[in-house]
């Protein structure tokens, strides 16, 4: 729903600015995740370094958004849709910041891995990560378009990511069992896989926020879950 502009133009500008900062921050996260996956699957250290460096930008966006939200609440006392815009911006920025951190962690581990990883592991990582990347893109589009239907799609797709994560984990465990020398790389790969899955979870969090933003109601019901995670035992 396109809203009519506010009578007070500066207030309108502040809300637009907040919105555009979320979009920009989301764009940086997309880029970082893309680079992090590129780095680990093509063994590209430069990409990994740039992800580590860019995390600072993402962190700064979170601080900026937090300040904007506090200012809006203190000085404008937003109501209804404006209140939801303000509150969800705060929560979404926090999820995006975590996505940035997880991409950075993947890249740090990438720099510690051996040059040659077995192809089946690389393929498994590509499969789960490409789904997560799509999720992130979709949820940022949903936010931009204020689409609760797109948000629900993202929310429901988390199940598939869980399944692909478990498959990837199983592959890594097999690799670990093959040879004691695989212990270091295999452990890093377990964390990498878990990080990718966590990024998926954050996109699901954002989906819940987008739904609330648009509808003013919370998404009801349990989150869709895939097969039980085999390594962490988390539910």
């Amino acid at each position: 729903m396109t809203e009519a502009p506010h009578t007070v133009k500066s207030y309108e500008e502040e809300l637009k600015n907040l919105n555009s900062n979320i979009i920009k921050m989301g764009g940086f996260c997309e880029k970082s995740l893309g680079n992090a996956i590129q780095a680990i699957t093509t063994r590209n250290s430069d990409n990994a370094e740039s992800v580590i460096k860019d995390d600072e930008k993402i962190d700064k966006f979170e601080t900026l958004i937090e300040q904007q939200v506090v200012n809006l609440i203190a000085l404008r006392q937003p109501m209804a849709i404006d209140l939801r815009e303000t509150v969800t911006a705060l929560k979404i920025s926090s999820d995006l910041e975590r996505i940035g951190d997880l991409a950075k962690n993947i890249s740090k581990r990438t720099l510690l891995l051996n040059e040659n990883l077995p192809k089946n592991l690389v393929d498994a990582i590509i499969r789960v990560s490409s789904d997560v990347q799509k999720q992130l893109k979709s949820i940022l589009d949903a936010y931009l378009e204020r689409s609760s239907a797109m948000a629900i799609n993202v929310w429901e797709s988390d199940e598939q990511i869980d399944d692909l994560t478990n498959f990837c984990m199983q592959e890594v465990i097999k690799y670990l069992k093959e040879n004691e020398k695989n212990l270091s790389d295999g452990t890093h790969l377990l964390f990498v896989t878990k990080n990718i899955e966590r990024i998926g979870d954050h996109t699901t969090n954002i989906a819940e926020q987008v739904y609330y933003l648009v509808k003013g109601e919370y998404l009801e019901g349990d989150r869709p879950k895939g097969t039980e995670p085999i390594v962490t035992g988390e539910k």
């Binding site: 809203e3 506010h6 009578t7 209804a80 509808k215």
Partner: peptide
Amino acid sequence: FKNPENKKTQDYITGRFG
């Protein structure tokens, strides 16, 4: 104040009137 049903209500309480 959080989620009014009518657009006119929303426009009024968010300062989008007129």
